[in-house]
Design a protein around this nucleic acid. Structure first.
Length: 256
DNA sequence: ATGCCGGGTCCTACCCGA
């Protein structure tokens, strides 16, 4: 089973990129982030024509997540449990497919909105921790994937791209990411490639792509029995060189 | 220190991203 994640930075701008990529890679399931439209505006028909059923959780202008799958699946949650009614933002989808629970997330960036904006990021991570802990207590086969907006270590951003106070690298951010791993999850990319530069994002600005100055912020975390079945985990950096690309590239995990 | 680019929307100057 091939499971992928991709922050597309507007699905309406990236519809043809996603179709081309699905036809080339044939993942069973693709989680999308930053669709930047309401569900009724999601171009589901284009994906259905090539064999992928779509479920979108959208909002106007910002955020938004979706699932595209060529295998049967059921959406079990459309928001992160435990965050409270203040969370009107479309950042979470949870599905079950082939007996595996798959969570797709667009974790808040945390650099806008001052300290309140950063507090929202941390609260979101705390609620995610609680949700994952509950599922793992029940021995649920689990994949947590998406745009985490976290560079877990100093190896996960090119030198000079981020300051020490950036919400993607602040100690409180990284502590929460580590706490997620300590629940028993395996970082799929690092299981395959323990050290060295693996980028999933290159800023549009300052020549980040031609200079290869990127970040690793899109992740796939695997529960123990899924991690044992891990065959490969890669960031498909080739798509960043296409015409009018997203600033993120897909991360693909293959489970045997 | 800020903007760089590229999405979005109150359609046009401004917000947000990472």
């Amino acid at each position: 089973m091939k499971i992928a994640t991709w922050n597309v930075n507007s699905i309406r701008q990236r519809e043809s990129h996603v179709c081309r990529w699905l036809e080339r890679i044939s993942p069973d399931i693709l989680l999308l982030q930053e669709i930047k439209c309401e569900a009724h505006a999601f171009p589901a028909a284009a994906f259905e024509r090539i064999g992928y059923r779509a479920e979108a959780i959208g909002q106007k202008a910002y955020n938004g997540v979706a699932v595209l799958a060529r295998v049967p699946f059921e959406v079990t949650h459309r928001a992160l449990p435990g965050l409270g009614p203040e969370d009107a933002q479309a950042r979470y989808i949870e599905i079950v497919a082939a007996g595996v629970t798959i969570i797709g997330i667009y974790l808040p960036n945390g650099n806008s909105g001052g300290e309140a904006g950063y507090a929202y990021k941390l609260a979101w991570m705390d609620a995610l921790h609680a949700r994952v802990a509950l599922l793992l207590e029940q021995d649920t086969p689990l994949v947590v994937t998406g745009d985490f907006n976290v560079c877990p270590t100093d190896e996960d951003f090119a030198p000079g791209t981020l300051g020490a106070g950036d919400a993607l690298v602040r100690p409180e951010t990284r502590a929460r990411f580590r706490a997620l791993l300590w629940l028993g999850l395996t970082d799929a990319i690092r299981a395959v490639r323990p050290t060295g530069a693996v980028w999933t994002f290159w800023d549009y600005q300052a020549g980040a792509w031609p200079r290869d100055r990127g970040l690793r912020i899109d992740h796939a975390l695997l529960s123990p029995t899924i991690a044992e079945r891990l065959v490969s985990a890669v960031a498909d950096r080739a798509v960043r060189g296409e015409e009018q690309p997203s600033d993120h590239v897909p991360v693909v995990v293959e489970i045997g």
